[in-house]
Amino acid sequence: MASAGLSFGNPVFAAYAAYASLVILKMFFVVFFTTYTRFSRGVFANPEDVKGNKGAVARLDHPDVERVRRLHRNDLENIPAFLAVGLLYVLTGPSPGVALWHFRVFTAARCLHTLSYLAAVQPWRALGFGAGLLTTISMAVQVLMAGTL
């Protein structure tokens, strides 16, 4: 069993830290893509943001902007849960190989979900969402089994 410490000497924590950083960076990509979409479509949420952007309008219903916002909201609903449960999972002292696959699958699933959402492609978007959710649930169950109620 791997050391359950929160140090980079623990291979499970090191893997968690790397994959957690990747999904956070992926989430920031969506933030920047939202900004790009707003500027490229000339659509902003607040009237003060329109100033200085010739031809821009303030509206909350542009389909392209709203698609990226829904993607971002989905990230905000799923990635923090992975970060919290993943950290607790590290503390259970899981097998490094099993833990690494949990982290890899979640990260790949969220990337697949993002690309599929932006391209409006089903069933890939649902598969990416489901794989990430199941991975987080798997870790949560293992944390529950390791804890006492």
Rank of each mutant, 00 (worst) to 15 (best):
K54M: 08
K54R: 12
K54W: 09
G55S: 10
V57W: 05
V57R: 11
A58G: 11
A58P: 10
A58I: 09
R59A: 11
R59L: 10
D64A: 15
V65P: 13
E66A: 11
E66F: 08
R67L: 13
R67Y: 04
V68N: 03
V68E: 01
L71N: 03
H72I: 05
N74A: 02
D75L: 02
L76F: 06
E77T: 06
N78L: 00
N78I: 00
N78T: 01
I79Y: 07
I79K: 08
P80L: 03
A81G: 05
F82E: 02
F82L: 06
L83K: 00
V85Y: 01
G86P: 01
G86T: 01
Y89V: 04
L91S: 09
L91M: 09
L91E: 02
T92W: 10
G93E: 01
G93D: 02
G93N: 05
P94R: 13
S95V: 04
P96R: 09
P96G: 07
V98A: 14
L100V: 12
W101F: 14
W101S: 11
H102W: 11
F103Q: 07
F103P: 06
V105D: 06
T107L: 05
T107E: 03
A109H: 04
R110H: 01
C111L: 14
C111V: 14
L112V: 14
H113G: 01
H113I: 01
T114Q: 02
T114V: 04
L115W: 07
L115D: 03
Y117P: 07
Y117M: 11
Y117L: 13
Y117N: 09
A119S: 14
A119D: 10
A120R: 15
A120D: 12
V121R: 13
P123D: 13
P123I: 13
P123T: 10
W124C: 08
W124N: 06
R125P: 03
A126F: 15
